[in-house]
Design a protein around this nucleic acid. Structure first.
Length: 504
RNA sequence: GGUGCCGUGGCCGAGUGGUUAGGCAAAGGUCUGCAAAACCUUGUACGGCGGUUCGAAUCCGCCCGGCACCUCCA
């Protein structure tokens, strides 16, 4: 694939869409900030993870090798401290005290549980498994060593409460976020009237914690500065450099991470290595839900499992692939409004892909003779989809091309001979590799047996018998009964088929 | 106050100087006992005001509006 357009992404650092140019040509080294595992991940988290996933899929589609690292933050960092309570609150500790958290013996147990839940959601949404999924708690030694080195080189200092990175010691602070002027920062922060607890011994208000001394924290490690825990920003620097080298090709995360998290990562990492930390930064815009900021208070807060769990288990029974498609239906960099209308459309689209896939499989089995009448056009459509993705992940355009292909396959109908079906199959495979929306990639634990299957089959048999007698009133009555059960019946040349009606 | 993203038809959402985006919803049609699915047909929109141009949704200026971030916290 040497004739492709360049892969271009918007680089927060330069404020421009520019070609992705791996240090080692054809090998993308990529770090994506993962979540803190103190509860179930929500759909906003997953929008960011999906951006990373699509970057990988696109890179692989043009034949690149990828090394993908995405961390799990399992250290209990502090919550925002609106109440000016001393030192804020450990997120893990708070989660442990919450109604959902009481069943866990301790914070470690809690972190382990929510890590598992994250991985389940990850697979359900067809996200590519990272090559390395490092955990902050498993890289304590590296973090402590990094702090020691920063102290030795004059980039950090110790106070009674912790160890801080000295922002004035790093010239480039602010180059990512544009927060380069101290007075403006202070002005803005003051305007927010946020009283955050400050360590009075800090030398500069911008200095940030590398290590916090806290004998009360539920997660503690012993360090040269006594018992405590690492600053939040540090883990990503350390784990990224451990697995990807001192300079990464690409670093991604949610837009909230631009400042201070990524700004601080740059300061630490470049002070440690003396080299550029990441060549390119990609940030995913926050989503809104039904036009509003997603928040628990307004009741428009959704975790992945709120939507995908079966209705019997309190979820909404939404196809995970429909959720995936809905979440990527807007470009990652634009404001995105997640609505149930979107979700409904996505569910239909996923169903169209699935139907096309099945139709093609059937045609493949039948293997009717004839020339390939779709291959060329499908190839062109794949090309369009790929080009769209290469252009700063233009998912709406890519999905449009994919839907055009589905329509093309549908339009062929019965004339889908063996040769055409082979082309269509190859096309669906390609589209699926690129966008991940055609089929589930990991086996679902629940087998596809519906508890009502027996009853449904009996009713369908009775209906077939009624139809044979041309007793259509009876047949339609049975259809209505099934409809009441949430079952949709479709009469096909091969006999009746049924499926559960979509949840949205 | 600073920084950044954005404003397209009923809705979602591409397009970035002149030629069809695509989808959802809606209406009509083909097919079907009826439905569903699939396919066909129907939509001339670009926040406002100026400017540049033969020509602007697309470039420039101003204005209006939306969203996000702004320190030790995800």
């Amino acid at each position: 694939m040497s004739d492709t357009a360049p892969f271009r992404l918007y680089n927060t650092l330069t404020h421009r869409v520019e070609p992705v140019e791996p240090l080692e040509p054809g090998h993308l080294r990529f770090y994506s900030c993962g979540p803190t595992v103190y509860s179930y991940a929500h759909i906003g988290n997953f929008r960011s993870f999906l951006t990373a996933d699509l970057i990988l899929r696109t890179a692989r589609a043009i034949g690149w090798k990828t090394t993908y690292v995405s961390n799990i933050t399992d250290v209990g960092h502090l919550t925002e401290d609106d109440v000016a309570d001393a030192g804020g609150e450990d997120k893990m500790a708070r989660a442990l005290r919450s109604p959902e958290g009481r069943r866990f013996a301790n914070v470690w147990d809690l972190a382990r549980y929510y890590t598992g839940a994250l991985l389940d959601d990850w697979r359900a949404l067809n996200l590519i498994e990272p090559d390395v999924r490092p955990r902050a708690t498993e890289h304590m030694r590296e973090q402590i060593l990094a702090v020691e080195r920063l102290i030795q080189t004059g980039h950090a200092y110790e106070t009674e409460r912790g160890v801080y990175f000295s922002v004035p010691s790093f010239e480039g602070y602010g180059k990512l976020s544009g927060n380069e002027r101290l007075d403006r920062l202070i002005e803005g922060a003051a305007a927010e009237s946020r009283d955050v607890v400050q360590d009075p011994d800090k030398r500069d208000p911008r200095d940030f914690a590398l290590w916090k001394k806290d004998p009360a924290h539920l997660m503690q490690w012993y360090s040269p500065w006594g018992w405590g825990f690492p600053g939040w920003h540090l883990e990503c620097s350390v784990m990224a450099m451990t697995y990807l080298g001192e300079t990464l090709d690409l670093h991604a995360g949610g837009e909230d991470l631009i400042f201070p998290h990524h700004e601080c990562e740059i300061a630490q990492s470049e002070s440690l290595s003396g080299k550029p930390f990441a060549r390119m930064w990609v940030h995913t815009r926050f989503l809104q839900v039904e036009g509003e900021k997603m928040s628990k208070r307004t009741g428009n807060f959704f975790t992945v499992r709120d939507l995908t769990a079966p209705q019997a288990e309190g979820g909404r029974g939404i196809d995970p692939l429909a959720l995936r498609l809905a979440l990527i239906s807007g470009q990652y960099r634009k404001p995105f409004n997640f609505t149930f209308d979107n979700l409904r459309a996505a569910a239909r689209h996923v169903q169209r892909f699935r139907d096309a896939d099945e139709r093609v499989a059937a045609a493949l089995a039948a293997d009717a003779p004839g020339d390939d009448i779709v291959g060329e056009r499908l190839q062109r459509l794949y090309r369009q989809a790929l080009d769209a993705m290469l252009d700063d992940l233009n998912t709406p355009a890519a999905i449009a091309a994919a839907l055009d292909g589905v329509k093309l396959i549908g339009g062929i109908g019965a004339r889908l001979n063996g040769a055409s079906a082979r082309s269509a199959k190859a096309w669906l495979d390609d589209i699926h590799r690129l966008l991940g929306i055609v089929r589930p990639e990991s086996p679902t634990e629940a087998p596809e047996t519906d508890p009502l299957a027996e009853q449904i089959d009996a009713l369908l048999a009775e209906r077939q018998e009624a139809r044979r007698r041309r007793d259509f009133a009876r047949a339609d009555a049975i259809r209505a009964d099934l409809d009441a059960l949430g079952i949709e019946v479709m009469d096909t040349p091969e006999g009746p088929k049924w499926r559960r009606k979509p949840a949205v």
